[in-house]
Design a protein around this nucleic acid. Sequence first.
DNA 1: CAGAAAGTATACCCATGGCTATTTTTAGGT
DNA 2: ACCTAAAAATAGCCATGGGTATACTTTCTG
Lengths: 142, 142
Amino acid sequence: MTDIPPTPPEDQADRFTRAREVQAVALLEDYVEMIGDLIVEMGEARVADLAARMGVAQPTATKAIARLKREGLATARPYRGVFLTEAGAALAERVRARHRVVVELLIAVGVPEKVAELDAEGIEHHVSDETLAAFEAFLKSR
Amino acid sequence: MTDIPPTPPEDQADRFTRAREVQAVALLEDYVEMIGDLIVEMGEARVADLAARMGVAQPTATKAIARLKREGLATARPYRGVFLTEAGAALAERVRARHRVVVELLIAVGVPEKVAELDAEGIEHHVSDETLAAFEAFLKSR
DNA sequence: CAGAAAGTATACCCATGGCTATTTTTAGGT
DNA sequence: ACCTAAAAATAGCCATGGGTATACTTTCTG
Ligand SMILES: [Mn+2]
Ligand SMILES: [Mn+2]
Ligand SMILES: [Mn+2]
Ligand SMILES: [Mn+2]
């Protein structure tokens, strides 16, 4: 009869480490998605519009764009708009698709639409590929 | 025939503002939950154990405890353990219950248990009371 | 009960992501 | 064309949350 080995602390720590890593990219994900939206809706992504939609001051958006550039997700020419790189556009597409699935799943299990939209904005970033696949399977099989 | 009024930018911004607010309390929630766990399992919550389980260096845990004290969620006597206040214990209980429900819901929609545990650690903080209620109703009605 | 080991606090460092105030550039109107 | 208004960049501030290195207590052990 073997005892159940107690979970070692560093294993337990993994989930927190993961959550912290996710948090670090969450902002980038929301920005690339929003830049993509603006380009589609407006033909271009201006810093002022980006800031307004993200609910931050304009210099905050400018700094976020600087980070996107560093990460190779966006380009920008001073006083002109912001553009997505290949990588940025690809990320935006994945993020947009995941966002949709998360909202749909929440609605499917009975969350009111408005609330689903609100909560999904934070939840989405923590949804792994495996969880996303499970969500899609669940939605299909209803 | 009225057009559908386009969502004003500041409304869109609300969800991002909310996500940022949630993020600010997420760490506190995980710490109080873990402090509660340690007290139950070990009889006391030591800084070193807390740090190990959270996956951070010891001074990082010490600083987090300072913040918990400031927020009225914990007390601590130097070189002795950490304790929860009434408010801290109440928060820990709510957080623990919510965590369980989120994990169960993920499993219920087909997410593998291991993955559910991982993803839930981040997701839980973004689950509003309304969404939590919907999750509970869904789990009950299966 | 003295010395060593372990645990904790403290002092600094860094990056992120908010902000306001100000400067610089671009765009528009007369 | 010029002047002005709007947009964007820059500078400088703050809090948070991560880290190392080191000092200080407490605890254990011979
Ligand atoms: Mn989001
Ligand atoms: Mn989103
Ligand atoms: Mn958590
Ligand atoms: Mn948790």
